[in-house]
């Protein structure tokens, strides 16, 4: 490592981080503002958080968001893990390239397009927009992220472990639950966390598929902001940021740990000969 920190490096680091985090920091600080005026500091207070709890509309939206997040992340984890298994296992089936391209496409697809096409689909098949439509839409959005995370874990899995289980008389489905799943679990959990946080902060796709009684928190915040920024919004945003930060940190710790484990195992094999 370069020991002499040049002024240039320090400056670019500070500027870069300031660019990223100063807006968020201001939001967090002002959520503890005693004054009702967003731009004037009136001393420290947690009154906006207390008021939040009494705001039934916001609490409802938060509850919808939680349920959508948990359900869609769970569906996405099952589907994404299955997609990752197929991509990892059947290396030579017809149309594999197309399939893997299609699994990964939503990663880069503009959200507006995904949202619009889902909206058209729901209208076409006469599926009522509302809670379940948002769940399905978020499952679609997030399963490819799960597939990517789980697949990177599967690549490091030694296939002979599954063969050994089969050889010892364990049928394939049981082998998946006894051997494969425990070994890829960190990836699966990380995938779930990622899907959950993506679902929490999605506005675009949710607003395409939402309906009466299914207002998620981002939609609620967005509509409130149009009437003016209040300290209450700062408070709810701060909570959202904390939840997402925790989710992302847990996900990255899990994938980092699996990386470390893998290296440790490789070293052990190398030393063991």
């Amino acid at each position: 490592m370069n020991k002499t920190t040049s002024w240039f490096n320090v400056t670019s680091l500070v500027v870069g981080f300031a660019f990223l985090y100063v807006p968020i920091l201001i939001l967090v600080v002002y959520s503890f503002n005693a004054s009702k005026l967003v731009t004037i500091w009136g001393g420290f207070s947690t009154r906006w958080y207390v008021e939040l709890v009494h705001d039934q509309a916001i609490m409802d939206a938060a509850w919808v968001t939680m349920r959508v997040g948990i359900l869609s992340a769970s569906f996405a984890t099952v589907l994404g893990t299955m997609a990752a298994l197929v991509l990892d296992r059947y290396r030579k089936f017809h149309g594999r390239a197309l399939f893997s391209g299609m699994v990964y496409a939503p990663l880069v697809m503009p959200e507006v397009i995904t949202g619009l096409s889902l909206l058209l689909l729901f209208v076409a098949i006469g599926f009522d927009r509302g809670f379940w439509a948002v769940v399905i839409a978020h499952t679609t959005l997030t399963m490819c992220f799960v597939a990517v995370v789980v697949q990177s874990r599967l690549v490091t899995l030694d296939r002979s472990l599954e063969e050994a289980a089969l050889d010892l008389g364990c049928p394939p489905v049981k082998t998946f639950f006894l051997i494969t799943l425990p070994l890829i679990l960190p990836g699966v959990v990380a995938g779930w966390m990622l899907a959950f946080t993506l679902s929490l902060d999605d506005l675009v796709i949710a607003s395409f598929s939402t309906g009466p009684g299914a207002t998620t928190l981002p939609i609620k915040i967005y509509s409130m902001v149009r009437l003016g920024v209040t300290p209450e919004i700062n408070a709810i945003s701060t909570i959202l940021i904390s939840v997402i930060a925790v989710g992302v940190i847990v996900a990255s710790v899990l994938s980092h740990r699996s990386q470390v484990e893998k290296e440790k195992a490789e070293r052990a094999v190398f030393l063991g000969g």
Partner: peptide
Amino acid sequence: IPPYKRPANMMFQSYALFPH
């Protein structure tokens, strides 16, 4: 006949021990 129904067991060259 799939591997899990064959009356043969194999010791793998790479050991293939279950790490968990």
